[in-house]
Amino acid sequence: MLTDYLPHYRIRLRTERLELRLPDLDDLVALADQAAGGVHGPDFMPFVVPWTDAEPVERGRATILWQLRAIASSTPENWAMPFVVVHDGQVIGMQEVTAREFKVTREATTGSWLGLPHHGQGFGTEMRAAVLALIFDGLGGDYALSASFDGNGPSAGVSRKLGYQADGIEHKTLGDVRRIDRRWRLDRAGWEAHRTHEVAVEGLDAAALAMLGLDAPPA
């Protein structure tokens, strides 16, 4: 079985409405379909790399290749878990968690997107809450990090709702335009104070933890 070789594929995050899991090939096709259908409006680019500025088939292809690269290049010291987000049996988007030297830093970074038909229904908050439970409860993390460009009100709103605090800015470029990327940081106390979703973390056994550079579950 795949999980004999990639045990982190056993990990499942379940909320009231959602399941998050690492994608199989069918999941990748469904995720590509969401990307091809669009993930944001035409007037604002929310990504540092403007991968959505392409024809539908190219967006879908880029999605599949990016997910495969993220999984294939992960190591215990520098890992990525690009979960697909499933609602009522349908893949609706993706929620990524990445970390470098997590065993030492105890911090991880999240990023996400949803297919356009699934915006405005609270899924963004719920899927971020799912991976925060993984970071803090499952892996014993101390901090979760995120970022959003100025003008990305929905992403910033999710961060504020879940207890993140502003953590400075960076300047990024899109073509010849300078943009402000606002960093967000959530510590354990802030997460505990803003928990609004029950999350079940499944499959996080010793073999899966080893894939993420950890020797044992948190105390």
Rank of each mutant, 00 (worst) to 15 (best):
H40L: 05
I135W: 06
G138L: 00
A72G: 08
T63Q: 10
M81V: 06
E19F: 05
A156C: 12
W66M: 05
D26Q: 14
T98W: 07
S73P: 10
V177H: 13
E16Q: 15
V97M: 02
A144F: 02
A129W: 02
D187N: 10
A72L: 04
E198V: 11
G141N: 06
W66R: 14
R61Y: 07
L186Y: 11
G141P: 07
A35I: 02
A166I: 12
W191D: 03
G168K: 09
K172G: 08
G175I: 03
V199K: 01
G141A: 04
G140T: 07
T173N: 14
A129V: 07
L174F: 07
V91G: 09
K103V: 14
G89Y: 10
H119Q: 09
K103L: 12
A30N: 03
L174E: 11
V199A: 01
A80F: 02
A206Y: 01
T173V: 15
P218H: 08
N78K: 15
M81C: 10
V177Q: 15
A200R: 15
M94P: 05
R14E: 04
R182K: 15
F123M: 09
L204P: 08
T110E: 08
V158Y: 07
W51T: 13
P154G: 04
M211T: 15
W184S: 13
E16C: 09
T109D: 09
S74T: 11
R10I: 05
V57M: 04
P42D: 05
R179V: 14
M127R: 11
L28G: 08
A219Q: 14
M211N: 15
I71V: 12
Y9H: 13
R17I: 08
W184Y: 11
V158I: 15
V84Q: 01
F83G: 00
R160H: 03
P82S: 01
D33L: 09
A207C: 08
G157L: 04
T105I: 02
T52Q: 12
L145Y: 12
M45L: 03
V131A: 00
